Computed example of a mutant assay.
Amino acid sequence: MHFYRSINTIKAFTFDLDDTLYNNNMIVENAEEKMLKTLQGYEQLRTLKLSEYIAEKRTVLAFDPEIYHDVNVWRIQTIKSLLNKTNIPVSKFADVIDESMNCFIYWRHKMKVPESTHSLLTKLATKYPLAAITNGNVDINKIGLSDYFQFSLRGGEHGRSKPFPEIFDLASSKLNISSHSILHVGDNLLTDVNGAINNGFLACFINIYNQNILHLDDTRCLPHIEITQLPELENLL
């Protein structure tokens, strides 16, 4: 554990989810492959390739740059855009979208949360209020983490995604604790560290690849604390 800045008294914690509380490697990629197979089950999309889906996703983003704040809406609009290029009746779009999104969400939550994460959150939750702030679409209820958190906020659904201020402000408001006393923990230097500090939070960077933070391209400012493994936060108890 490295300290780069002096810290105020910590009164609450907020956590990023993906690659902070569990290994998210290949989870989204696998879920997209399963979703693609579902779409390919329709004759009109039988030859759809993942590269074509990704290209369509970029086209949707170019048309509506703000859509990236909500990854669920972005995915739905991408599927709809693909359907518009087929002869599938518009009346069937909702069914296709529901089936493919349900498939994606099912596989999106097929991850194992380490026991070390459960152990840490159990200990922290006895002393501090905890909350989750994610730019993704993981439902903490589906991965066994809901008991630890007072609430979970998601980009798009609860304001623009990190590092923008709305979602941080809402977390502070819902916790009823000054942002200067909330430690946000995350693995992303731009969305988590820069976002937290620019919005008055304390920041803890979990350096999952154990690289020199001063040599990382995304470093805009130093966090208050740097760790390489989540259980190191027990040192703050």
Rank of each mutant, 00 (worst) to 15 (best):
L222K: 10
A203H: 04
L189R: 07
N30T: 15
F201W: 01
I27V: 15
F149E: 13
H109I: 14
S116V: 14
D187M: 04
Y4Q: 03
K127S: 09
E29M: 04
N199M: 10
H215P: 06
F201E: 10
N135W: 03
D18Y: 02
F15E: 03
I182E: 14
V28I: 15
I7A: 06
N235W: 02
P165V: 07
E226V: 14
T20Q: 05
S119Q: 12
T219R: 08
V60T: 10
N84T: 04
I208A: 11
P165Y: 06
R5N: 15
V60E: 06
F149P: 11
D218Y: 00
K80M: 04
I167D: 07
P165C: 10
K142L: 15
L170T: 10
I97P: 01
N194C: 10
I206S: 09
E32V: 10
L130V: 07
L124E: 02
R108C: 09
Y128N: 11
P163N: 00
T117V: 13
S119A: 13
P114N: 07
D19F: 04
K80C: 00
A31I: 09
T86V: 05
S152I: 06
M35S: 04
G144V: 05
L83N: 02
K57N: 14
S119K: 11
A12S: 14
T59M: 11
N194R: 02
I88G: 00
V60Q: 09
L36K: 08
R58G: 15
H180L: 12
L120H: 03
E33C: 10
V71W: 01
K127P: 00
C221R: 06
S181V: 00
L39N: 06
H224E: 00
H118V: 11
N84D: 02
I182M: 11
I79Y: 05
I133P: 10
K174P: 02
I88D: 01
W107K: 02
L233P: 05
Y42R: 08
L124K: 00
L82V: 02
M35Q: 08
R154I: 14
I67R: 07
L121T: 06
